[in-house]
Design a protein around this nucleic acid. Structure first.
Length: 504
RNA sequence: CGGGGUGUAGCUCAGCCUGGCUAGAGCGCUUGCUUUGGGAGCAAGAAGUCGCAGGUUCAAAUCCUGUCACCCCGACCA
C-alpha cells in the first residue's frame, strides 16, 4: 500500500495539535465519546493507566495519614446554598435531580412521576455533604484532625467537553480534612500539594510548578487555592492538581465546631484537595509523539510486550515456548511498586501491524522474538521513547531491563523539563508580552507562546486584556525570587512575578 | 444561551442544486489463496427502514414543513 506513512498519527502535533490529541486517544484505544452528551467511556487500556495512578496516589494518601471513605452522589440543594461563594461558583454547572420513579404513559413512553420535595444536585464536589457529616462528628479538639479521602465520580455540566481534559462526568479523588488550628490546616494544604507534585514528577515524569492561584482563579469558597501547573507540548498550561485552604469558611457555613483545650467553642479549619482523570490527558499531552501514545514506564499497564515471529507451526511452538519462559523470568523482576508487567501478543496478524499496535499504545519496551533471535538466545529490543532498536542477548536484557525502564522514565521527564525551560521567558514590557502570546497565523494559530514570568496586579483592566488575549495567570510560584517590580500590563507596583500562559 | 454547519454501511464521505433503473466509493469486517523480521497482495462476500415525523408527486436520499441529535466558533470551566 502507500507504505510511506511517516507517522502513525495524522495529523501531527505541529499540523493540528487538538486533532492530534483526539487521534492519539483513538489510536491507543484509551477512550471514546459515549451516547451520553459530554460523557466518555474509558476503555481498558485507558482505565488501566488510571488504575495505576489511583494505586500510587492511594498509597501516598495513606502514607500521609489519610483514610478512605465514601459519601453520597446526591446532595440536597440546600446544602450547596450554605456557602455563598461556593453556590455562585458551581450553581450554573450542576445537574439537578427533581423526580424519582418512572411510570408508563399511554404512548408507551416513560414519564417521571413523583417530584422530590427538595431537589438533589449531583455532586460537582463534596465539601457540603462531607462538611455536614463532619459537623456531626466533631465535638471536641480530640476529634480532630479528620483526614479523609474519597474516590468518586462528579458531574459538572460543562458546555464544551474534551476527552479526559473536560467531561461532564469525571472521576477523581477528593480529600477533605478538618483541623483544630489554622497552622495545621495550612500545613495539610501544603503537604498535599507536595504529594501531587511528587506524583506528577516522579510517576508521571511531568515537571510541575507549584503555586498559589490569584483571587480570580481561586476555588469558590476557599481562602487560598494552591495548584500544580504543567506545560503541555503545545506550550499551553494544564492545571494538574489543586489543594485548597478553606479557612473557616465552610466550617462556619456548616457549623463544624468543637470545644478547644480551654473549653472555648471554635470553628474547625478545613482543607480539600483533588486530582482527576484529567491527569490521563496530561500524561498523553506531556509525552506522546506523532506515532501515538508514549507512557512513562512507572504508570504503563504493560512494561514489555513480547512479539513472537514465526512462519510455520514448528517455529511457532518453539518461539511461543521461548516467549513463555522469557515472560516468566521478566515477571519475577521487581519494578516501581510491583513487578514487571509483561504481555505476549500472539494474535494471528502480521508482524508489522502488530508492532505498530503497541507503538501507538505506548508500551515502553517491545521485544520481537523469532527463530533467528532464539538461535542467538537474544531478542530484538525496541525502545518506544527513542525508537532505538538493537538485538540484545537474553541475559543482559533481563539483567538491565528495570534499569532501561528507569532510563526511559528519566528521559521522558528530562524531555518534558527541557520543553518547559526552552519555552519559559521573563517579560517586562506590554509589547513583548503581546508579541509572545500572539500567533503569526491568526486563522489557524500555530503552536506558540509558553510560560511568561511577569509582574502582575489585581486590576479590572488587566483582567480584561488577559481575557481578550486568552491568557491567564496560572499561579504565583511558591519557589522563585520575590523581587518587586511593576505589573507588565498596568504598571502598578508588584511584589513578585506570576506565571502567565494560555491554558486548558 | 448567541452565530455557523452536518445527519446516507462499523468509520470517512460522494450522490441532493436540476426528483426517475437493483443507492455508491474508500477504509474496516468475513472467507479463500499467496505472503510474512516494520502498517501485505489478489479474488469473492456480508453489511444502509438515506436522523425522525408529516406533506407535495405517478415517483422522494433528492423538493416543502416540523422535529430531534450531533459537530465547530463564542460566553463558562478541573
Amino acid at each position: 500500500m502507500s507504505g510511506k506513512a511517516k507517522t502513525a498519527i495524522v495529523p501531527t502535533r505541529s499540523d493540528d495539535y487538538p486533532e492530534w490529541y483526539q487521534q492519539v486517544i483513538k489510536a491507543a484505544d484509551l477512550a471514546e465519546v459515549s451516547p451520553v452528551r459530554g460523557c466518555m467511556v474509558i476503555k481498558p487500556w485507558g482505565w488501566s493507566i488510571w488504575e495505576n495512578m489511583q494505586a500510587v496516589l492511594d498509597g501516598m494518601f495513606k502514607a500521609t495519614g489519610h483514610e478512605n471513605a465514601y459519601f453520597p452522589l446526591f446532595i440536597p440543594m440546600s446544602f450547596l446554598q450554605k456557602e455563598a461563594e461556593h453556590v455562585e461558583g458551581f450553581a450554573k454547572e450542576c445537574a439537578v435531580v427533581t423526580h424519582h420513579r418512572l411510570e408508563p404513559v399511554p404512548d408507551g413512553k416513560l414519564m417521571p412521576a413523583a417530584p422530590l420535595d427538595e431537589p438533589y444536585i449531583v455532586r460537582p464536589t463534596s465539601e457540603t455533604i462531607i462538611g455536614a457529616m463532619y459537623a456531626k462528628w466533631v465535638e471536641s479538639y480530640r476529634d480532630l484532625p479528620i483526614l479523609i479521602n474519597q474516590w468518586a465520580n462528579v458531574v459538572r455540566w460543562e458546555m464544551r467537553t474534551r476527552l479526559f481534559l473536560r467531561t461532564a462526568e469525571f472521576l477523581w479523588q477528593e480529600g477533605h480534612t478538618a483541623h483544630a488550628t489554622e497552622a495545621e490546616a495550612w500545613e495539610e494544604t501544603r503537604r498535599m500539594l507536595d504529594v501531587y507534585a511528587d506524583f506528577a514528577e516522579n510517576w508521571m515524569a511531568m515537571p510541575v510548578i507549584r503555586g498559589e492561584k490569584t483571587a480570580g482563579e481561586r476555588f469558590p469558597g476557599a481562602v487560598s487555592t494552591l495548584s500544580i501547573e504543567a506545560m503541555m507540548q503545545d506550550r499551553k498550561a494544564l492545571q494538574a492538581g489543586t489543594s485548597h485552604f478553606l479557612g473557616q469558611n465552610f466550617s462556619r457555613a456548616q457549623q463544624i465546631k468543637f470545644q478547644d483545650q480551654n473549653g472555648q467553642e471554635a470553628f474547625a479549619w478545613t482543607t480539600s484537595w483533588g486530582v482527576s482523570t484529567r491527569l490521563v490527558g496530561a500524561l498523553i499531552m506531556s509525552h506522546s509523539d506523532d506515532d501515538g501514545l508514549v507512557l512513562p514506564p512507572k504508570l504503563a499497564p504493560k512494561h514489555v510486550v513480547l512479539l513472537p515471529i514465526y512462519r510455520n507451526d514448528t517455529d511457532r511452538a518453539n518461539v511461543l515456548a521461548y516467549c513463555d519462559s522469557l515472560k516468566r523470568d521478566l515477571e519475577a523482576i521487581p519494578y516501581a511498586n510491583g513487578r514487571l508487567r509483561v504481555q505476549i501478543d500472539d494474535r494471528d496478524i502480521r508482524g508489522g501491524e502488530k508492532a505498530w499496535h503497541h507503538v501507538k499504545r505506548g508500551v515502553p519496551l517491545r521485544a520481537e522474538i523469532g527463530p533467528k533471535d532464539i538461535a542467538q538466545d537474544a531478542v530484538f529490543l525496541c525502545r518506544r521513547d527513542t525508537g532505538t532498536k538493537a538485538s540484545t542477548p537474553r541475559a543482559p536484557f533481563i539483567a538491565t531491563v528495570s534499569q532501561t525502564l528507569d532510563e526511559i522514565q528519566a528521559n521522558l521527564f528530562q524531555r518534558a523539563l527541557k520543553l518547559r525551560q526552552d519555552n519559559t521567558v521573563t517579560i517586562d514590557s506590554l509589547a513583548d508580552f503581546q508579541a509572545y502570546f500572539t500567533p503569526k497565523n491568526e486563522e489557524r494559530p500555530e503552536i506558540h507562546g509558553g510560560f511568561a514570568l511577569c509582574h502582575f496586579s489585581d486590576d479590572p483592566a488587566v483582567d480584561r486584556l488577559l481575557k481578550d488575549m486568552k491568557v491567564t495567570i496560572r499561579c504565583i510560584p511558591l519557589e522563585g525570587d520575590k523581587e518587586p517590580g511593576r505589573c507588565v500590563i498596568s504598571g502598578q507596583p508588584s511584589s513578585q512575578r506570576a506565571v502567565f500562559a494560555k491554558a486548558y
